[in-house]
Design a binder for these strands. Structure first.
Lengths: 210, 210, 210, 210
DNA sequence: TATGAATGAGAATTCATTCAT
DNA sequence: CATGAATGAATTCTCATTCAT
């Protein structure tokens, strides 16, 4: 199911609804969110929602797709400023967490709501998310080609581990009220763990020989 | 455990219902799961559910609490077999992912359902989860005390980053049908990234001089 | 449907249950009352109730029948102390309201719950209640036979009007928390209205000649 | 009226539902009445009920309030046609019972359902009912001021006794299938009892010298 | 007799979606 | 395009009653 293509409707209203939905989903959660509440918050009638979106699911999916598109573009632009793959990893972490910081509600929805249930993670092929992860895998392969990252490092594992580390950190940051760490500090620490963890030529293997 | 102290009720039925709920929640997701489906699957009447649980939410919470208790006990027992904090990290990763491997449905519920924003992660003080994360922080502090882990490493960041990495990996593993990596391989790679990433005395800092 | 005839059961428990039911019905109302609450209050198991009563309705009906029997016996004994029919009317009022005063919960149930709904007032032929009303009609006829009460007074109307007057007064008395009138004062006023209202030889008719 | 201010909704539907509810409540009793049955009888969907009323209770309360308003207006208009307080009493009785005669279902609901203890008579401050009773008290005071009614008569007792008498009579009339007395005959008898009972200067006191 | 765990029919209410205006 | 009243399917939870112990 793909979202409504704005045929000849005012794109302004489409975005109003999306923005209202972001707030309502973040506040209540997807299943507790009421379409009528989104409508009220967007300043339109309930029925109007259905001129722009197929149904409630479609609103969430549109949010995710449009949101991920921005994230991907933004993060790609950031890492392209760097040539060193190891430094790209740091850039990625910073860009990711900066986006979370500046789009708390949106971040919460992507993290929490979209991965929430079978409904979305199973039935909906999450192309955009995979594309995002593959940016990381790409950096790793690039580093390996340049001999900067160990050959035995699996890009498919790094991409998930690194994303998971950032994502858990941002969940914490998003959900907690009083924040202990600056989110950029966290970005730097996490990227440093991974850079040290995967770069080539740092002597003995980690786990010993058990 | 839940409100109902199982006075003279058979604890067997309590567990039957939990096990049925695990299957149904894993299959449909919490919000799509029907209490009557859990009842049917548990081989009891709908009303019987309410002799053992306050309501549908309570079933999920009991699943989480009882499940996390087992995870914590199990993981604690595993890492206690090791004295070297760095090796404990590897043990943790292996134990965590082995549990996921052996309790797929349960793992999916803990990961996916309990993350459901408002209702559970906001209103529900997730003590058990925090206790689990603090096992990791404890290992890190231990390693720092022994001079094995760098002093500038924040245990509060490592615990979330490490858990997030494992968790994302297991989400992938749980949700994907055909599996590329052995989950134990993933455990070893991820723990190696972190061990190399945080251990003391491995030369130049990670990020270079930016 | 008639209530369970105590075959070979302990009558003590039967009364315990009735007394508990009186309290619970008075507190919650019949439909809001829970059988399990009556059981708890009576100090028996839920199932035990059904050894003494057919069902929940049967408890209410038994309360009414047993209660009315006492009321009728008591009121009959009172009016038999008097020979003058007009004075019997006053005795009736006093006895009725004294019973209400001393059995508030029971009075509330008879007034409020039993006449409450179709269920009881339509399906259940209320013999006891009619018997009670007919005590009044009997006094009126006696008074008419003695020439003390006007011949044009309809006993069937007086019995209902008089009972209704007392009953409304006692409803007020039962439901109000702070009481303005002594209930015996009310008994005397009301009986006086009716005695003056129906006795023979008091000159011009009431309503004028419209 | 109820919470829902009928903004753009058709008030016609509000009344359809009320009328359907009157029939269903009269037929089944409040607790046995099904919302879906009211909906069917009103020719609307179940959910539509909830656009006009908060819940099932609210329907009953609206019925009572709207019904009592009509009764009060109607009875006030009737007694205002008379100047003699004693004749007003007769007018009141006639108007009251005429309303019962012409609105059997509604009368039954007001009498039987609203008397339902806890929920309505205790928690719900029954202003309208008290207002109605005070019409009677007002007439009595007026009669006392003119010397037509004895000074020792308590208006607060008369109002309840007189209402109770009429109400019990109409309960009988509403619930019985074959009717012995014309309801207007009853109105005249009852008002005559009370007029004779309370008017000034009719010789010896009622109760004799007990 | 007494128990109380188990039953399962039953009902109020919600809310995504539609469609006449 | 926009509205929002109307729809009605769908679901949790309750509680009188039963019956194995």
């Amino acid at each position: 199911m793909t979202h409504n293509s704005l045929k000849n409707k005012k794109p302004e209203k489409y975005h109003n609804i999306q923005e209202a939905a972001v707030r309502v989903f973040a506040r209540r959660g997807f299943y507790q969110a009421r379409v009528s509440e989104i409508a009220r918050e967007a300043g339109v009638a309930d029925g109007t929602i259905y001129l722009y979106f197929e149904n409630k699911d479609d609103i969430l999916i549109s949010l995710f797709e449009d949101g991920m598109k921005k994230v991907i573009d933004n993060v790609r632009a950031e890492i392209d400023k760097e040539t060193d793959p190891l430094k790209k990893i740091q850039r990625f972490a910073r860009a990711h967490l900066a986006l979370v910081e500046n789009n708390k509600d949106m971040a919460e929805i992507i993290q929490v709501e979209l991965r929430q249930s079978s409904k979305f993670m199973k039935e909906y092929r999450n192309e955009k998310f995979l594309e995002y992860l593959d940016i990381i895998a790409g950096i790793v392969r690039e580093g390996q080609a340049l001999g900067l990252i160990r050959e035995d490092v699996e890009p498919g594992i790094v991409k998930r581990a690194f994303f998971g580390a950032l994502d858990e950190m941002s969940r914490f940051w998003v959900l907690s009220t009083r924040r202990k760490y600056n989110i950029q500090t966290a970005a730097d620490q996490i990227s440093e763990f991974f850079i040290r963890g995967i770069r080539a030529g740092s002597g003995v293997p980690a786990g010993g020989r058990n």
